[in-house]
């Protein structure tokens, strides 16, 4: 059992890294008091998901998804799917990264707006001010 568990960890340590990063991000989103810290936690969670997708795309013994000699006269070589890394998760995640920076901009704009309204970024102080109104 112990040996099995160890070989399981050794062959899937990347996914365990994803789980740890997701836990860090979720903890920052739940337990941190500062709004900018929460936004950083949200971004860590996003990158953890992107890392998960990119990990599923990896193939042993394959190269990057750009066809060799593709630019001068294609069709001479037979292309095997096992020679190239799966491009589909890369595509999905590439757009996700750019969308994540756009959502980051909106989140930071909201944080700046909250700071101008309440004079603080701490969640408990904002809640206290709302209660006293």
């Amino acid at each position: 059992m112990g040996v099995e568990l160890f070989s399981d960890i050794a062959s899937k340590y990347n996914y365990l890294g994803v789980v740890i990063l997701m836990m860090i991000g979720l903890y920052a989103m739940i337990a941190k008091n500062n709004l900018v810290k929460k936004i950083i936690g949200m971004n860590i969670f996003q990158t953890a998901i992107i890392l998960f997708y990119v990990s599923t795309a990896a193939k042993r013994g394959a190269t990057i998804p750009i066809i060799r000699h593709g630019h001068n006269g294609h069709g001479h070589e037979v292309i095997h799917a096992a020679e190239y890394i799966n491009p589909l998760p890369h595509v999905l995640m590439l757009t996700a990264i750019v969308v994540s920076v756009a959502t980051l901009g909106v989140a930071l704009a909201l944080a700046v707006k909250v700071y101008h309204q309440y004079g603080t970024l701490e969640e408990d102080e904002i809640r206290g001010q709302l209660r006293n109104k």
Partner: peptide, 28 residues
């Protein structure tokens, strides 16, 4: 991991522009 396009995007977006956005927000 061989995801060169994703890495390129992250280098420009994550390490470049989003740090600037954070610094701009902290500045205000």
């Amino acid at each position: 991991m061989g995801a060169v396009d994703v890495a390129f995007t992250e280098a420009t977006v994550g390490a470049g522009v989003s740090t600037v956005f954070f610094v701009a927000a902290v500045f205000h």
